[in-house]
Every structure is written in C-alpha cells, then in structure tokens.
Amino acid sequence: MRILIWHVHGSWTSAFVRGVHEYLLPLVPGRGPDGRGRAVTYDWPDSAREVPWDRLRDEPVDVIVYQRPHEIDLAREWLGPRAARLPAVYVEHNTPVGDVPRTRHPLAGQSTITLVHVTHFNELYWDNGRAPTCVIEHGIPDPGHLYSGELPRAGVVVNEPVRRARVAGTDLLPRFAERVPLDVFGMKVEGLPYDTYEDLPQHAMHAELARRRVYLHPYRWTSLGLALIEAMTLGMPVVALAATEAIEAVPPEAGVLSTKVHVLAGALADFAADPERASQAGKAARAAALARYGLSRFLSDWDELLGQV
C-alpha cells in the first residue's frame, strides 16, 4: 500500500514506517508541523519517502492515516476531491483534556473513519460517540539489551518540561532529586538543576540512558510514554506514577508503581543502591516490554486494520 501519513510523533512513526508498505510523508517549506518530512534524529527506511505538499496531487495514495483533525482539511486541499473517497483511519495518540469524563473526541460525530487508540485507557476515557474504534497498542523496534546501570543515577525523558510541567510531572523532579541524582533527556531548558541532554539521535540517547541505574517516569497524564517502553526494552528497571496505562505496562517484578511520591523516591534510592536488584528488575522489564510491545505484533495489527479499511 501507499500510505499518506504526517510526521507528528517521531517514536511512534519510527515503528509504523518499518512495515512492508510505502509511506508518503508531506514536506512543507521550513519543515513546519504540517510537513516535517523524514525525521532527522531517527533512522527510517527508504520506504518512508518525503513528498513536497504541492506534488501530492500527482502521487497515488491507497489509504490516509490522520493524527490531527486539521489534517483532514489538508488532505482535501493537497489531494483534491479524491481525498474524500480514499480509505482513512485516525490515530489518537493523546489522553483527553479538559472535563475528562465528558471529553468528546473531534471525530465522535462521524462513522466512516475508524478511530484508532494507542491504549485501552484512551479508548475508555474519550467519548468516542458513534465513531468506530479499535485499539492498536504501541510497538517499538528492539534497541537491544544495552543496560549497564553503571551510573547510580536516574534517567528521565521529557520534552518541553516547563510547558508540560503538570502533565509530565516535571514539578515533581526536585522531590525525586533529593534522593537520587537525575539526568533529563529530551529538550534542554536553561535553569533546570539537573544534567540535561538535548536532541540526541535516538540510538545515542538509548546508549546514554542505559548507563543510568534506573528509569523514572513521572508523567501524570499521558497515553503511555514510548520512552517508558524503550527504557524497559533497554533492560532498565522503572519507577513510575501509577497513572493512565502505566499500571498495565509495568509488571510488579519490573519496577515500582505508586501514586505516593515518597514511595517512588524511596524506590529510586533503593535501585540506585542495589545494582544487582536493579539488573534483575531490568531483565523482567525487558521481557515484559518485548512480549507486549514487540514490533512484529504492532505491524501485524496495523496490516490487518489497513487491509480491512
């Protein structure tokens, strides 16, 4: 198939474009959010091909994968009348915001585009209306068991840590840092009292992250951070807020989940002080992540859905 898809979420797209299809990635001048083209910090196959937006009318397209409501209008503008006739699905990456029990999804009022949630939590908490829904859980390429845990520190991955402070739990980091030194990976922000690592290529970030003794996932409200799954596949033990889908993703033997900050801080300190225990929990985390979030299952689920639509 020839699949039109926007580069919105780098880690998720990195898994999606590893299928057997051809992936058309819109490109706009300046690589703005409506047309980033190929990723810079991820290693994508040649089948993921960027196409200038003004040449899409000449490209054969079999199916469209939307991820933001306005992409439906962009497709109509860039593809012309055929956009309305093409099969399409919509991937919802995010948890609902606002008055959550009553949050109605933007596609809830239609029944022709399947709404694909990335977690069962999301499908449960969004008001999907009459839209057909399904859940295709995350899948990631296996980075390998890179864990050494040589540094008795905690690694955290978070972009936009200031704007997303409550969502990402960045406001909690000072309380954790009282017990264990923290290294923050993602988007660097001046003034954070931690060592930060900005915009590393994915393989370099994985190698650096795996040197830390334990992974900290402080997110209050996210579907299921792919960085958490990646850390688990690296072989890292994890300490996470018991929120959203994390309670389904992390088995007890792989780390510690709690809504009590002092319990999580204590778990970080315990892992930092006990390399053997950390290594054993990390092995369990890797096994659990590969069993549930393997790339082959993810791509198989997507092939089945795309074949149906």
Rank of each mutant, 00 (worst) to 15 (best):
L79R: 11
K260T: 13
Y66M: 11
G30R: 13
R2A: 04
A243M: 14
R164L: 14
G98E: 07
L234K: 10
M205I: 00
G19P: 01
L27A: 09
V189Y: 09
I64Y: 06
R166K: 12
A108T: 06
I113V: 15
Y66R: 12
L209N: 03
W53Y: 14
R31T: 04
H206S: 00
D34R: 13
L192A: 09
E123C: 14
V65K: 02
L216E: 08
E276T: 07
V162Q: 10
V51G: 10
R166L: 15
V261W: 00
V118N: 09
V180E: 00
L257D: 07
A269H: 04
G10K: 05
H117Y: 15
V100H: 10
D270P: 04
P161F: 06
V158Y: 09
A242R: 14
A231D: 06
L173R: 14
P252Y: 09
V97P: 07
S47F: 01
A231I: 10
R2I: 02
D43M: 12
V61G: 12
H120V: 05
Q110I: 06
Y23R: 00
K260R: 15
A272P: 05
E230R: 00
S14I: 05
T13E: 10
L241I: 11
L264G: 02
P143G: 07
R213M: 00
R102T: 10
A84D: 15
L173D: 10
Y125R: 15
Y90C: 07
